[in-house]
Structure formats: structure tokens, C-alpha cells
Computed example of a mutant assay.
Amino acid sequence: MPSYNTNARIARFALSTSAAVIGSLAAYWTLLATRQGHILFNARKRPVVHLSEDFSTYSHPVPGGMVRGYVYHPQGEAAVQDLFLYLAGRGEDVRVTAQALHWLPEGFGMAAINYRGVADSQGSPSEVASVADAEQFARHLRRAFPQARLHIVGRSLGTGVAIQLSARQPFESLQLVTPYDSMLEVAKKRFPLVPLSLLLRHRFNSIEHSKEVAAKTQVLLAERDDVVLHERSQKLIDAWPTPVSVKTVANSDHHNIMGLEETWLRLIDFALTSVLPEPMAA
């Protein structure tokens, strides 16, 4: 039979191991609580991306620096008839995504900003800040392109921003690429040991915000998606307050979907079909 000393050593080892695990969890939870904005948005600098003369630049001041954005108008500002306002996914540098814009036809342009702390934008990212910056950018676009029809395209994390923006301002259409019902539900999969219901501040409750959306809406799903599970997208679709068009992009996953021609063709087609015809003269 084991001696008293052996049992004592085993007990001390168990206690020390438990204390280490508890300490590690506490440190992990503290990091998530204090840095969750940067973690959620994957906020970090990116290498410089040089864009062509088809782009104009945008910026506005925020605490800690500037938010920066870009507008693509290859035929000139006056030629833009339909303008996509693109709200990016987690950690996405919109300057890189802009390299796929050769699929846009004549008369189309795209505008996008990098979230605070991401790529060349500065400041601290958050749900509130991302929506506020998108609102300010949209107001700028309406002034700069008064002749253009404005459409929102949100991708992944950006679908939560797009839905809140669409609930606050009128747009010709709203298109959501790999959307989710709430960030809380998505995060539970990634952080199963974290009490997210208590810690998560940036919840992006898209189901709740969708109640105020009136824009004609399309959802594009990836054929394979291990980041935003189809279950999470379907919860949002089922709760949507108006009819919604749902399409699946062939041969796509969560990461490559914005680099596929089919994605852009579907975005363009839906934007064009969403434009209301001009009323006939009396």
C-alpha cells in the first residue's frame, strides 16, 4: 500500500496542477476581457499595398489616429452609377480585397475602410466604433457620389456592421456574405472554456438589429465553411423580417469566397435587380 508520504506528494501535485490550470484560465480570460476588441478584429498592421490611379483615398480622425479607406472608380467619379460599400471580414485588409475588382462592370465602383487598428487604420477597434466609422463613411460617399446608388456588402464579421448600418440609413440593397446570427454564438465554438456570456462586449447581435432593416437582401453562403457554420447563418436567415434571397457559391470556403468570380457576379446581378425603375411620367 502507498505510504502516507506518497499520498501527500500526490495530493500536493494535484493541488499545484489545479492551481496552475485555474491560474492559466484566469489569465486567458483576463486577456480576452481586456484585449477582446483587438482579438475579435485581428487588429494588426499589414504590409503596404500599392493601388492604382483608379482609387481615391479617404480618411477621418479617431482617437489614436486615422481611419483610412479607398474608393474604386476606374471610369472616374462621375461615371459611378452603382457603388458597393464593402464592410470587411476579420483582419481583412481592404486594399488586398480590392485586387479582385476587375470583375466589376462599367458604372460600378467599390468603397471600403479598414477597421480601427487593422492594416493602415489606427485606433482601438470595437463594435460601436466600426458601426460609427461605417456611418461616417457612408455619409461621405453620399456627398461625394450624389448620382450613385449605394449598396452594402458585408462579409463575415462585417455582416454584423452592415446590418446595423442598414438599419440606420437607407440603401438600395444589402448583401451578406457568410453572415452569422450573433458573434456570441460564433465565439462559443472557438472559446468553449470561456464564460463569454459574461465577458463578451462586442456581441454583434445581428438577429436583433435585423428587425430594423428594410433594404432588399441577399445572403451568399460558402459551400464549405468551418468558421461561420451554416447553422449560424441559417438562424439569421430564418429570423429575417422580409423575404431574403439565399445563394451558395460553388467551390467556395470561408476564406476564398471573395476571390471568386461567381461571388462578384452574384453581387452585381442582385444590385442591378434591386434598383427600382424610374416612375413613368404622367
Score class of each variant (00 low, 15 high):
Asp133Trp: 13
Leu101Cys: 00
His102Arg: 08
Gln136Cys: 02
Glu135Val: 12
Leu101Ser: 00
Val118Ser: 03
Arg116Phe: 13
Ser121Phe: 13
Ala119Cys: 04
Phe108Cys: 03
Pro125Tyr: 11
Arg116Asn: 10
Ser130Cys: 12
Ala98Pro: 05
Ile113Val: 15
Leu104Lys: 04
Ala100Gly: 05
His102Pro: 00
Ala132Asn: 13
Asp120Met: 10
Ser124Arg: 15
Ala98Glu: 04
Pro125Thr: 10
Ala138Trp: 04
Gln122Tyr: 13
Glu106Trp: 00
Met110Glu: 05
Ala129Gly: 09
Gln99Cys: 00
Ala132Gly: 06
Gly117Ile: 15
Val128His: 12
Gly109Met: 09
Val118His: 11
Gly109Ser: 03
Leu101Arg: 08
Ser130Met: 06
Glu127Gln: 12
Asp120Ile: 10
His102Val: 02
Phe108Arg: 01
Ala119His: 07
Gly123Phe: 14
Ala112Ile: 08
Ala100Ile: 00
Asp133Pro: 14
Val128Asn: 04
Ala119Leu: 03
Ala112Cys: 08
His102Ser: 08
Gln136Ala: 11
Val128Gln: 14
Thr97Pro: 02
Val118Ala: 09
Leu101Gly: 04
Asp120Phe: 13
Met110Val: 12
Ala132Pro: 02
Gly117Cys: 15
Val118Met: 09
Ala119Tyr: 08
Gln136Phe: 03
Ala112Leu: 07
Ser130His: 08
Ser124His: 15
Thr97Ile: 07
Ile113Glu: 10
Tyr115Asp: 01
Gly109Glu: 05
Ala129Thr: 02
Ala119Ile: 00
Gly123Ala: 07
Ala138Pro: 08
Glu135Tyr: 03
Ala100Asp: 09
Gly123Gln: 08
Tyr115Phe: 12
Ala132Ile: 02
Glu106Ile: 01
Val131Tyr: 11
Gly109Asp: 01
Gly117Ser: 15
Pro105Trp: 08
Phe137Ser: 01
Asp120Leu: 10
Ala100Met: 11
Gln99Val: 00
Ala112Val: 01
Ser126Ile: 11
Gln136Val: 00
Ala98Gln: 07
Ala134Gly: 07
Phe137Met: 08
Ala112Trp: 06
Gln136His: 09
Thr97Arg: 04
Ala111Ser: 04
Asn114Ala: 09
Asp133Arg: 07
Ala100Trp: 06
Ala132His: 12
Phe108Ser: 00
Trp103Ile: 00
Phe108Val: 03
Leu104Asn: 10
Ala98Asp: 02
Ala98Arg: 01
Ser124Val: 15
Ser124Tyr: 14
Ala129Glu: 09
Ala138Val: 01
Glu127Trp: 10
Leu104Gln: 12
Ala129Asp: 10
Gly117Phe: 15
Ala98Phe: 13
Val131Trp: 03
Ile113Gly: 12
Ile113Met: 15
Ala100Gln: 13
Ser126Glu: 12
Val128Cys: 05
Gln136Ser: 07
Ile113Pro: 09
Val128Lys: 14
Pro125Leu: 06
Glu135Ile: 04
Phe108Asn: 05
Ala138Ile: 01
Glu106Ala: 06
Glu127Pro: 08
Glu127Arg: 07
Gln122Asn: 11
Leu101Lys: 01
Trp103Ser: 01
Asn114Ser: 14
Pro105Arg: 11
Gln122Ala: 12
Ala134Gln: 08
Ser126Pro: 10
Asn114Val: 06
Phe137Glu: 02
Ala129Arg: 02
Ala129Leu: 03
Ala111Cys: 01
Gln99Lys: 06
Arg116Cys: 12
Leu104Trp: 04
Ser126Ala: 09
Met110Leu: 15
Glu106Val: 06
Leu104His: 10
Gly117Arg: 15
Ser130Ile: 05
Ser126Phe: 13
